[in-house]
Amino acid sequence: MKYAQWIITFPNGFHISETVVTSWIIMAVLIIASYFLTRNLKLVPTSKVQIMLEYAVVTLKNLVEGNMGKDVFKKMPNMFYYIGSLFLFFAFSNLIGLLGFRSPTADVDTTLAWALLTVFLIYFEGMKAKGLAYWKGLMEPVPLLLPLNIVSEFATPISLTFRPFGNILGGTVIMGLLYKLLAFISTLIPNVSIPFLQLVIPVPLHLYFDLFAGCLQAFIFVMLTMVFVSSAAE
């Protein structure tokens, strides 16, 4: 298992971890790609790039509106931009493992930060829609269930944090063990100094853990975010 390392150290003892640097790289790539992909846009698209971008934007907008409901979506139009940004950052955080980087989602700090953002949106929209009456829901259907409802409020950020973290970290651990096993097996083959088994066998597993499972966890996270926030805002 590969742990996040301190890769930048300042004289005052302040450290920056591998997770933070990788997150900066992902954000820089997304910002640069957004800049170049959205240059010279036309009212009537003529390029394949603009057509694909408009198709992706419309599909995402329909997904957000369909899951949150038209009434809630009208009250929260900026939710579309948040969900799109969150999905892209989440997906790229998982896909970056294909390039040999450690996925930021394999660090619980990353998924915890995203979960806290979702919880903040839940409470903010709930208070915005219902005022202080939002908190009366903790005593429904009967006041006796107040302790259980409070526990369920803590369960939301915990489940949002550890679901993607556990899945991505599990894939990282499995791939790390597999690479060590293949390297050991390669040393048992005579006249072979290169661990060639590591070049081919892990490819389908990378496609599953980094590509399929990574995008799936990103989709599940944004879906749960939309459901929780829309329920609070109704």
Rank of each mutant, 00 (worst) to 15 (best):
T187G: 04
L43G: 13
N191I: 01
N78W: 06
V44T: 15
E18D: 12
P77A: 14
P11T: 03
D107L: 03
F209V: 11
A213L: 14
V229C: 07
E18F: 08
F89R: 03
P190G: 04
K75P: 01
F101M: 05
Y3I: 02
L178N: 04
K48Q: 10
I26N: 04
K61Q: 11
V119S: 06
K70D: 05
P157D: 08
Y179M: 02
P204H: 10
M76D: 10
W114Y: 13
L99V: 01
E140P: 00
M1N: 00
L148Q: 09
V72R: 05
L95V: 02
F92A: 15
S103N: 01
M52S: 15
C215D: 07
F120S: 11
M52W: 14
L207C: 10
L146Y: 14
E125N: 08
F92Q: 06
S152I: 06
S152W: 09
A4K: 01
L30M: 10
L160C: 06
Q217W: 04
L207I: 12
F10H: 09
P11A: 10
L144T: 05
T118Y: 00
V229W: 05
V21W: 07
I174F: 15
K75C: 11
I174Y: 12
S231Y: 09
V173I: 05
T22P: 01
T59V: 05
I31M: 12
G214M: 09
I174M: 06
A155Q: 14
M76N: 11
F101E: 02
I83R: 03
F219Y: 10
Q198S: 06
E65K: 09
P164W: 00
I220G: 09
M76P: 00
F124W: 13
V57K: 09
T38I: 01
N167Q: 05
C215Y: 05
F89P: 00
K48G: 11
T161E: 03
T105A: 06
L145I: 13
L95F: 14
F87H: 04
R163L: 02
I174P: 01
S47I: 00
T156Q: 13
W6Q: 08
V57P: 08
L132S: 08
S231F: 08
L197H: 03
L207M: 13
L205S: 11
V227I: 10
M52L: 15
F165R: 03
V29I: 14
G66D: 07
T46G: 15
D71W: 08
R39V: 12
R163M: 06
F90Q: 05
S34Y: 13
I51F: 12
M76W: 15
P164H: 00
L178I: 02
